[in-house]
């Protein structure tokens, strides 16, 4: 049962990542691309966690946490750059 659920979920989330790529390529604005990458990071965290369940491994937790933190900080830093012209004042 778990095998089936994880396979299905990995496929569906893979499709979701493809749609993020579509938005990233199409744009039109740079912020659409930022939002697409931000969403892609969250999809990647989901893929990592589901792979962790499949391999019955705790080792992926740190990877997921790092993705979450780096994704958030980079998105906010980019928006701040667009808003203020610099990141740290």
């Amino acid at each position: 049962m778990m095998e089936m659920a994880t396979t299905l979920a990995l496929g569906v989330i893979g499709l979701a990542v493809l749609m993020n790529v579509y938005r990233f390529v199409k744009g039109p604005d740079i912020l659409d691309r930022v939002l697409a990458v931000d969403t892609m990071v969250i999809n990647a965290i989901a893929l990592i966690v589901i792979a962790g369940i499949r391999f019955a491994s705790h080792a992926v937790f740190e990877a997921a946490l790092l993705f979450a933190m780096v994704g958030f900080v980079s998105t906010v830093a980019f928006c701040r750059f667009l808003l203020r012209g610099n990141v740290l004042e």
């Binding site: 659920a5 994880t6 299905l8 979920a9 569906v12 989330i13 499709l15 979701a16 990542v17 749609m19 993020n20 579509y22 938005r23 939002l35 697409a36 969403t39 969250i42 999809n43 989901a46 589901i50 369940i53």
Partner: peptide, 17 residues
């Protein structure tokens, strides 16, 4: 929960596209 989570992730990305 995994299937439900995958569904919502899909909806989010679909809406974005």
């Amino acid at each position: 929960l995994i299937v439900l989570g995958a569904f919502f992730l899909f909806v989010g990305s679909f809406g974005l596209a």
